[in-house]
Amino acid sequence: MRLWHRLTGDMTTRGQVALAMFAALLLAAPAFIGSYPLSILILVVYFAYIGQAWNVMMGFAGQLSLGHALYLGLGGYTAAALAFHFGVSPWIGMIAGVLVAMLAGGIVGFLGFRFSLAGVYFALLTIAFAEFTRILFDHFKWVGGSAGLFLKVSGDPGLWHLRGGPVMFYYVILAMAALALVACRLMLTSRLGYHWLAIREDPEAAQASGVDVFRGKMIAVLISSGMAAVGGVWAAFYYKNLFPETAFAMGRSIEVILAPIIGGLGTLIGPFIGAAVLVSLGDVFTIAAEKIGEIFGVKTAGLKQIFYGLALLAIVAFRRDGVWPWLARKLGFVHSDPYLPPPAGKGR
């Protein structure tokens, strides 16, 4: 019963029923929808999962990372290279990938936190490490350099080699996202989680009241980078190719952070809502741009992204705390007193 309470927290009965129905819908979805909607759904769950990984660091512990592509890329490259060269199963490779990414995260975190870099400076450090690694991998011939690494398409299908159709990949990423959701919930309601929130809200006050700030931040970056690496392995085997220019790109780091921020930073359902909003907006805008191009007979390269940028601008301007906290209250899914306060402004 205590565990149940920790898992449900401030959710109303209505909220719990809605969540259960939503989970059932996601589980049954592949039986009802075609391959195109399924590919969209896969993207939503994937972005929700990697967003959740980033959320641990920024949403819980308040450390802004703009270089999470580093951990996704290292995880993906490690598992893919092991599979490519030695035929190692991605699940074994995943362990190696997670360790490599955690090592990188540990280095970035240790250096950043030891030298007390905060805010923009820490964010720039994370970007610098990701970019540095991107250029190094361009010249790393063992994994194909800038020409990329391609995984074999043929071979024994099956879960053990992560080779199969979209339905298999869907259930794998869905399981990962569900596990991450439960794990994050348990972490947040543990001693560690409260330490994170204290560090996020006011590191000096946290330190003064006996919280080991450095340790808390280190655990956050290690967990976050490890979780991101798992997502990177999944993505590498789903897309079956890796290029430094995309695996470690600044653009990929941005993709990671969009869903949790749009959905609601520090909330657990936020990354799912944010991912759903962003992926469906992207799809609608692709179609809209195509139609406009047909009707007016003009080239529309870039038009989709302009719509996307405008939508992002509108969400940032009007729903600064994200869509989910507002939506959850409107629908009566949480008790009126929100469990997690929105992160405070930086003040001056």
């Binding site: 923009v120 921020i261 992204q305 940028g309 601008l313």
Partner: peptide, 19 residues
């Protein structure tokens, strides 16, 4: 406001400008 929100705002602007 918090730095990540400024980042999001200017990111949206940069997406619009480039495209």
């Amino acid at each position: 406001v918090a730095e990540h929100m400024q980042f999001m705002l200017l990111l949206a602007l940069s997406i619009i400008i480039v495209n």
